[in-house]
């Protein structure tokens, strides 16, 4: 048994694996992403979240029945809030634990000692998480659509746009969670990411509240803080003013152009956060 297979050249095409060519990178990132998806799919808490969201949808149905005119309004609001809030909390949960777990349980040792670059590992983890979150958002969205349809309403383009925006929000939150966990403990990362989520969502409100603050110092700190936090408020626009016009998922909603711009904005944030996360992760010792 010592003769045969060891003599085969192991099927490695050096150019594909080594050249650092985009194909090689994509292959490795994808390998990590699939593995991460697999790992996440075994986390029971996620199923709990799904059940929770479905239950809140059912509750919305019941509440909707009671408010005679507004039943679809309640379903849409609850559905969208569910996607945004539970999606983001799940993103923080996954982002904070998945990368940390690899280091903690030392599964990372057998991986980064192979010809993968650290940034490929970090990006792979993110892509895997993004896949999971996309599935979740899809599930939540489908549940909301089912609910609205049951109530005799249609799935409007406004609803679709709102789901796409929430999806962007969730992916951005996931990137910030991974970013924090690339250098701190799950507990701290969780707090940071949560703070970022809340501040990011409430940016306009915080800005408005501190605009009149007497201390210029407070104004400066607020301004800087709001600048360095992703603009998550871009993704929850229903009930706000956008470019001076009131916007609501129940009535006049944003254009697809707005959705695309906001998605682009989110993409830049994600790329930036991942670049920093990769940089920090590359400098770490796995001892």
């Amino acid at each position: 048994m010592s003769n045969s297979a060891s003599k085969s050249s192991a099927g490695i095409s050096p150019s594909a694996a080594l050249g650092g060519g985009p194909l090689g990178s994509i292959g490795r990132v994808w390998a990590i992403a699939l593995n991460t998806f697999r790992e996440a799919a075994r986390i029971r808490v996620l199923y709990g979240v799904v059940i929770l969201v479905l239950m809140s949808n059912v509750l919305a149905l019941v509440l909707g029945e009671m408010s005679i005119y507004e039943e679809q309004r309640v379903s849409r609001d609850v559905g969208l809030a569910g996607i945004s809030i539970f999606g983001s909390l799940t993103a923080i949960f996954l982002g904070v634990f998945l990368l940390y777990g690899e280091v903690q349980r030392r599964t990372v040792h057998a991986i980064v000692s192979k010809p993968i670059q650290r940034w490929e590992f970090v990006v792979g983890k993110y892509v895997g998480m993004a896949l999971v979150l996309t599935v979740l958002v899809g599930l939540f969205g489908a549940a909301m659509a089912a609910m609205v349809t049951y109530q005799g309403g249609g799935v409007t383009s406004a609803l679709l746009k709102a789901v796409v925006l929430s999806w962007c929000e969730v992916l951005t939150v996931a990137a910030s969670a991974i970013f924090f966990s690339s250098f701190s403990s799950p507990f701290l990362s969780g707090i940071f990411a949560l703070a970022m989520f809340v501040i990011g969502r409430l940016t306009p409100d915080i800005a408005a509240a501190t605009e009149t603050a007497k201390s210029s110092w407070i104004r400066l700190v607020t301004k800087v803080t709001l600048e360095i936090v992703p603009d998550l408020h871009l993704y929850s626009v229903s009930g706000r003013n956008v470019d001076g016009d009131p916007v609501s998922v129940h009535g006049d909603f944003v254009s697809w152009g707005y959705v695309a711009t906001s998605a682009g904005h989110g993409f830049l944030w994600i790329v930036g956060l991942m670049a920093l996360a990769a940089l920090l992760f590359s400098r770490r010792d796995f001892a």
Binding site: S4, A110, P115
Partner: peptide, 24 residues
């Protein structure tokens, strides 16, 4: 299989090599 992918080994060889090593 995961290890093989990270080494850039093609699918058929991954399978063959894994089978051999598992027995070994």
């Amino acid at each position: 299989d995961l290890a093989g992918r990270l080494f850039g080994i093609d699918r058929a060889t991954r399978k063959k090599r894994a089978d051999f090593l598992i027995d070994r």
